[in-house]
Design a protein around this nucleic acid. Structure first.
Lengths: 128, 128
DNA sequence: TAATTGATTTACGTAAAAGTCAATAAAATC
DNA sequence: GATTTTATTGACTTTTACGTAAATCAATTA
C-alpha cells in the first residue's frame, strides 16, 4: 500500500474536484498531513474520502456523514457513552433499511415501466 | 378510495410543509386540480408525492426525480423513443444498484462498529 | 356581522455544498 | 535559470430546496 496520495490523484480516482476535497478538510472529515503547504493524503484519508462519497450517494448530508464516520471509530468512554453509541448505530441502520425499501419499491416500478415499454414495442410492430 | 385530499391532509400524512408541496407543484411534478383558488389533490397526486419523497430519501435531486417519474408514465412515441426510454430505465437501475451496494457496505461497517462497542463493554466489565 | 381559521400568492431570505476566480507560491521541466 | 505546471489560500458566486413573512381572500364559527 502506498504511503501518500496527492490531491489530484484522489480527484482523478474519485471524480471529484480539489475544491470538494478541501471542503471536506475544512469540515474536518479528512485531515491530511502537510509537507510544507501541500497536502499529503494517507491511505486512511483515502478510505475516509471513499466513505464520505458513499454517504453522499445515499443522500446523507455532511452532518449525517460526520455522525456515521464517528461511529466507525474505536469506541471510547464509559458504559453509558458506549450504549448511546450502539443506539445511534441502530438508528442509522433503520435509516438504511428505509432506503433499502425505497430502492426495492423504485426497482419494482422500473420493472413495470420496462414491461410497458416492451408491450408498446410489440404493439407498434403488429400495427405495421 | 377518497376523491380528493386537501393540502394540509397531505402535509400531515407525509410530514412535509405546504411550501414543499407547492414547490413541487411549481416544478410541475404534481398538478392538483382547483376549486376556485384552493388546491384539490387526487389520489394520483398523492401517489406522485409519495414517489417524490421516496426519491428524496434516496438522495435524488428534483431533476432526477422528474426523470424517474417520466419513465413511470405510459410510453408514447415511436420505436426509437421507446428504446431510448428503456435505456434510461436501465441507467436508473444501475444507479439504484450502486446505492444498494453503498447501503450494504455501510451496513457492514455498522456491524463492525457495533461489535467493537460490545467488545468494549465486555472489557469495561472485566476491569471493574 | 364580526372574527377566527385556513389557504393562496408574492417575494425575499437562507443553508448546504460546492463552483469559480485571482493572487500567490512551490516544484518540476526544459 | 527561466518557465511551465501544480497546489494553496481566500473571497465571492451559484444552485438547490425549500423557509418565512406579509398581504389577500374565502369559508366557517361565534
Amino acid at each position: 500500500m502506498r504511503e501518500f496520495y496527492t490531491i489530484t490523484e484522489l480527484t482523478k480516482e474519485f471524480g471529484v474536484s480539489t475544491r470538494t476535497i478541501r471542503f471536506y478538510e475544512d469540515e474536518e472529515l479528512i485531515k491530511p498531513v502537510r509537507r510544507g503547504r501541500t497536502r499529503l493524503f494517507r491511505p486512511s484519508d483515502r478510505v475516509l474520502l471513499k466513505q464520505i462519497l458513499r454517504g453522499k450517494r445515499l443522500g446523507f448530508s455532511i452532518a449525517e456523514i460526520r455522525e456515521i464516520i464517528e461511529v466507525y471509530k474505536a469506541p471510547s468512554g464509559e458504559e453509558g457513552q458506549i450504549k448511546l453509541m450502539i443506539e445511534r448505530i441502530n438508528q442509522k441502520r433503520k435509516e438504511l433499511e428505509q432506503k433499502r425499501q425505497d430502492i426495492d419499491d423504485t426497482m419494482r416500478e422500473m420493472d413495470g415501466a420496462e414491461e410497458n415499454c416492451i408491450e408498446r414495442l410489440a404493439e407498434l410492430r403488429v400495427s405495421q
